[in-house]
Design a protein around this nucleic acid. Sequence first.
RNA 1: GGAGAGAUGGCAGAGUGGCCGAAUGCGGCAGCUUGCUAAGCUGUUGAGUCGAUUUGUCGGCUCCGAGGGUUCGAAUCCCUCUCUCUCCGCCA
Length: 423
Amino acid sequence: MLDAKWVREHADIVRDAAIRKRLNPEVVDGFMEKDAAYRSLLQEVEGLRAQLKASSSALGKMEAAEREQALQTQRERKAQLKSLEKQEQSLRAEVHALAMLLPMPPAEDVPDGDDDGGNVEISRHGQIPEPDFPLQSHDDLGEALGMIDIKRGVKIAGSRNYLLLGDVARLERAVLNLALDHMFARGFQMVSVPTLVNRACMEGTGYFPGGEEQAYIAERDDLALVGTAEVPLTSIHSGETLEASALPLRRVALSPCYRREAGTYGKDTKGLYRVHQFWKVEQVVLGPADEDWSLQEHQRMLGHAKDLMDLLELPYRVVNVCTGDLGQGQVQKFDIETWMPSRKSYGETHSASRFHDFQTRRLNLRYKPEGGGKPKFCHSLNNTVIASPRVLIALMENHQQKDGSIRIPAALQPYLGGQSQIA
RNA sequence: GGAGAGAUGGCAGAGUGGCCGAAUGCGGCAGCUUGCUAAGCUGUUGAGUCGAUUUGUCGGCUCCGAGGGUUCGAAUCCCUCUCUCUCCGCCA
């Protein structure tokens, strides 16, 4: 959500943001138009209401005779007000619906582009393996080991479902635990969060409206399964005014994530790349409304994920996500893409976003500034720490050995009882 | 799941149709006092939004959990919902 007052004065910037993000710029004009109409109607309604109020309080002190007369005109005005109020209400709803669609302007250094093809590589890390034997895909490796069973996953829950067994299941657990400890060491507080959340959380974090098709919705209870712990983590303090001294709030959660993957038929159908349910360790930070701070924190959060990838000895790159691939609310996003031999390419494994006050405005999440004054909206940021099974693809394929066994990076071994390979 | 009670300003807590944006206390802020001293006294103190503005403010409207209704007029009466608490049942 954007500040309506600001939008009124900077419609051109918002329109430009919509164009850069490949969103429909007509929402901006629609908003401006409806908003102006709404405010002028509001003037009218409030004027009439003021009249009515004044004459109404006079009524209480009147003599019976003149009272009857006054009551009559009062009723007429009331009817008039009612119909105006009805218009005002529906207009207000329209304005709000449009406001929820306004795009956050992207940062200056976000590259222009239509889709992920326009993302710009910033850096590369690690060594892409070039072994003297043919590399197998993770699903072939896993099947041969008897530790990945996609067929039976599909039997139980339909396409894009899977089973992990034995050491690969333990490997998943190990990676997630390492990721959590990694974040504890960086001062993050662990939170165990609800993953079935109400509409306000989905709207507040920017997933609704627009992302309904992507979410599993429990209609009977009007709750949605989250696609990421970002949703509950960011929503924790919605509606609250925090003390400046409490900021920044750095939180990490491990949660299951659910995505319908609607509109991806036939895409990434092989293996564990695109699945309906997965685990993710997610970092979320809430801080003051300070652009510089926000920028630095974004880099710091990206660093946490990069450090972990280094510990896992995986080759990856960082990309500056282009405007067309940016969400409605994101100011800037950096993705980490990890090398996946079976795909012969880097595949997205992490996504680090900063939002300024886009989410916090929707969530009504504020703080009292240091030197006093009016509460301000916090800035919010989030980034993946690790997501599995997608990271298992990289781990299994990059660390496979000639005999089909998987080498365990040193950092993970303590989490697997000292085991140095899976065979 | 059943029965009951409740939701009022930063907090506690009054308020059963116009005198209520809301008593009182605490807290906060400002000043005074400086031999009742980790105190006393006096004053002051909600938010949002729209408009005007000589940018100091001024005016309108809204807000007593949320949404609807009755009424000329609702914190107050009616309905629905959400949440909290107590008791019973069930459960991990």
